[in-house]
């Protein structure tokens, strides 16, 4: 077990938070299923029946997990994330999130080139020409693999429209 030095987030806190999140998802599911009737009609259960009880079981099971966390994890000083780990995870997740954001507006190809290029230059400390070469060739390879060979179109943005690539 790790000691608590440099702990950003304890396992206990995370267990509690996760149980609360899953319980609230359960509540949302219950609420959403009320729309179509959760009872028992002439021909068995109504459309909302199944999701409603799934939601209820979800809330109940989350409650048990919450209680378990209170019993088992409160005393133990286990870490979920240390500061160093948090740095590594954000360094990975941040660019990935931006990649999705850029891709959903400018298309997957532009997103991919920017993402690969930036990660290689800023995190991998590669020279610009090398990063550019890798990023561009990845986009070209994907273009041929998906659009030409398998004929599966990927998400495209304004740049492709300008260049007349469909």
């Amino acid at each position: 077990m790790r000691t608590t030095s440099g702990v950003l987030l304890s396992r206990f806190a995370m267990e509690i938070a996760t149980a609360l999140v899953t319980a609230s998802i359960g509540a949302v599911v219950c609420f959403g299923s009320l729309e179509f009737g959760t009872g028992w009609g002439d021909a068995g259960p109504q459309p909302g029946y199944f999701p409603f009880y799934v939601g209820l079981i979800l809330i109940f099971a989350s409650g048990v997990n919450l209680a378990m966390a209170l019993v088992h994890h409160r005393e133990r000083l286990e870490a979920f994330l240390t500061t160093e780990q948090a740095h590594r995870v954000t360094a990975f997740f941040g660019p990935m999130f931006l990649f999705v954001l850029v891709s959903s507006f400018l298309g997957v190809y532009v997103g991919m080139i920017l993402y690969l290029f930036c990660v290689m230059v800023f995190q991998g400390h590669y020279p610009v020409h090398k990063a550019l070469a890798v990023a561009l060739s990845a986009a070209v390879a994907n273009y041929f693999l998906f659009e030409v060979w398998f004929q599966v179109p990927l998400l495209k943005g304004p740049l492709e429209a300008m260049l007349g690539i469909h």
Binding site: V100, V108, F146
Partner: peptide, 14 residues
């Protein structure tokens, strides 16, 4: 991994 990692990410999202 700073090359392979992002490439895997791209493949996953595609």
């Amino acid at each position: 991994f700073s090359i392979i990692g992002p490439l895997i990410v791209v493949v996953c999202f595609i």
